[in-house]
Write a protein that binds this DNA or RNA. Structure first.
Lengths: 349, 349
DNA sequence: GAGCAGGCTGGGAGCGCTCCCATGTGGAGT
DNA sequence: ACTCCACATGGGAGCGCTCCCAGCCTGCTC
């Protein structure tokens, strides 16, 4: 009779059946007592709760999700190297927003990495098995097939960022993005208003829509300036501090008369500020700098940095809310939300 | 007959039963064909695989884990603010090691945050429901009851760091830690060998064993020096760059004759280096600095920093391997592993 | 005092899967 | 030709839970 499949000393985990027996009620009543207690007498209620406590009962989530068709947890999938995931405060901030919203709805959040092709394939297989009720995917590079593939499996997907191509029309796929084009334009127009005429750009990865959008915002303004927007006036970075420093050095080398820089995020702005200082340029007198993000709690990254604020926490919350709506099958107000940004002027411009 | 519980257009997800019917075999044969194919004829094998592909079959993981009693995924639980989780490269590095090992064993890794008391309670309830076969917990503060509580629920736990108190003897709880005491001692002895006599310490949080161990290592050496180890010679930090800078300023204020600093991690060393520079001290001529960690790929954090290397990736792998052993019920070579560190001398000392 | 709601209760059905066992089926051994 | 065994197969049992429905017992109304 003793099933010793488990390794924990042979003691069997208590099941609902055992709790019911201990409480002297049926399985059905025990289930009701433990889940809201509708149509359960006070006596039964207390007996069941006492029995559950006595036995240390914990409902088996696999059994529950098998019958419910829901696991009660959602995934935050990051298509990014673990290195950048953990070094860029952007992800932390999105995660904070998502997390805050989910906690309020009693949904468990799990993070999962899907960087290499093998991991992405495994991620697809796994999520298709429905251990998660839905997923939020951030940091999508290129024309990544993963979000669309997961959505096609019937698992709701929300993308943090823009969606291009045919995936835009998939019913099970929504997105939340900042208005990167307008934000970038505002930043550069601000530099122009400050009298700058030689404004460089340190872009994000150009295989990401966010990288291209901010570049395009910069270009649309700078190309109207006397000098135009020669290709050497924008340098591609990868959102890391080191790449920001390197890009700033290259900008300076190609354009010694540089008097303004717009970087695609604040972390790269930090790198650029360091490089400018090393090159003997004063900020903002010689070169004015504007970043992008303005994440809360990251004043330390680049003190006094003028930047374009995107409401990342609120965006995270919106992603979570959107996903929960989709999971419940409720209609979305807008499948692809775009939230606006604000210029925050400080000392570097 | 049509069950419209699902929201995905009414198309029912294919089950194993349907695949079997499509392939013209029984459920049992289909199951065998899809899992290794033992005792399955070539004909049946191919028919099942074709049918599965045609229907887009994906096994339901809840059903599988219900019968197997295993979910095939393990959790990396971080008892830390999302902010620090994502800003300290230490976590990324542990995660990388854990991840590498698990991928090789075809186990899915999920990260979960458990910072606030409410989240920790939820984490306990959740993990007790066995959605995970085991958990690795890192960044444990104080006498955290969470690891012990999870282990007591019968879920194997591996702690990244040291374990103190009664939890040490729990059968379902193991740990992997660096030899922080010896590492710290080596660092400070190195400074002494360099002729330094006024060696301060910027410690980690003292509610963490790792913080206390490295402090103790420093103290054991410094207390033997002529000036001893007055309380003002060590300042508590929280492993962040800002706290390192602030601590360095306080050390300098209390001890203008400071000629050496040992910081409990590299990130704080970076902050300290900045503060020392601002205070006009030359490194290493005026003040020598030694950090702790030497994480791969983080040369950018503090170039040329002399530091104590702990093999964090290998430790992550060891945590994962240990957990897998426990899950399989195999005996552990050592329940509490301690790995040794190496001093890496560079330019700051 | 019969009739009737409405609250409680027990237990069957079933979620989708893997294991197990009884039952085939062919080829090798005598 | 007969036995024997290895391989192949189908389908029942059961993992632990929630839903559902029939049946019960109250307490109330007329």
């Amino acid at each position: 009779m003793e099933d010793s499949r488990t390794a924990d000393g042979g003691r069997q985990r208590p099941t609902l059946e055992m709790v019911a027996a201990e409480a002297g009620v049926s399985r059905g009543t025990a289930s009701r007592a433990l889940n809201g207690g509708h149509n359960v007498s006070r006596r039964a209620m207390e007996a069941v709760q006492a029995a559950a406590a006595r036995l240390g009962y914990r409902p088996n989530l696999a059994a529950r999700s098998l019958v419910l068709g829901r696991s009660g947890s959602i995934g935050l999938v990051v298509s990014e190297s673990d290195e950048r995931l953990f070094s860029d405060p952007y992800f932390a901030t999105v995660a904070r927003g998502v997390h805050a919203e989910l906690m309020a709805h009693d949904v468990q959040l799990v993070l999962a990495l899907a960087q290499t092709p093998a991991e992405r394939e495994r991620m697809l297989r796994w999520s298709a098995g429905r251990p998660l009720d839905g997923v939020i995917i951030i940091s999508v590079h290129g024309a990544d097939p993963l979000p669309g593939a997961i959505a096609t499996e019937g698992v709701p997907v929300v993308i943090g960022g823009a969606v291009e191509g045919p995936d835009r029309d998939l019913p099970g796929l929504a997105s939340v993005d900042a208005d990167n084009l307008a934000g970038a334009r505002t930043a550069v127009e601000h530099l122009v208003a400050r009298g700058r005429t030689r404004i460089g750009h340190i872009s994000g990865p150009l295989d990401m829509v966010v990288g291209r959008d901010r570049l395009e915002g910069w270009r649309s303004v700078v190309s109207g300036l006397p000098g135009g927007a020669p290709s050497t006036l924008s340098v591609e970075g990868d959102f890391t501090e080191a790449s920001g420093a390197e890009a700033a050095r290259r900008l300076l080398a190609a354009h010694p008369d540089l008097d303004g820089v717009f970087t695609a995020n604040d972390v790269m702005a930090r790198g650029a500020l360091g490089a400018l200082q090393q090159a003997g340029r004063r900020v903002p007198q010689d070169v004015a700098v504007v970043g992008f993000d303005d994440l809360p709690g990251t004043e330390g990254i680049a003190p006094g940095l003028t930047t374009v604020r995107q409401p990342v926490i609120e965006m995270g919350r919106l992603m979570a809310r959107t996903l929960l709506m989709m999971i419940e099958g409720r209609p979305l107000a807008e499948q692809h939300a775009v939230v606006s940004t604000t210029l925050v002027v400080r000392e570097t411009s």
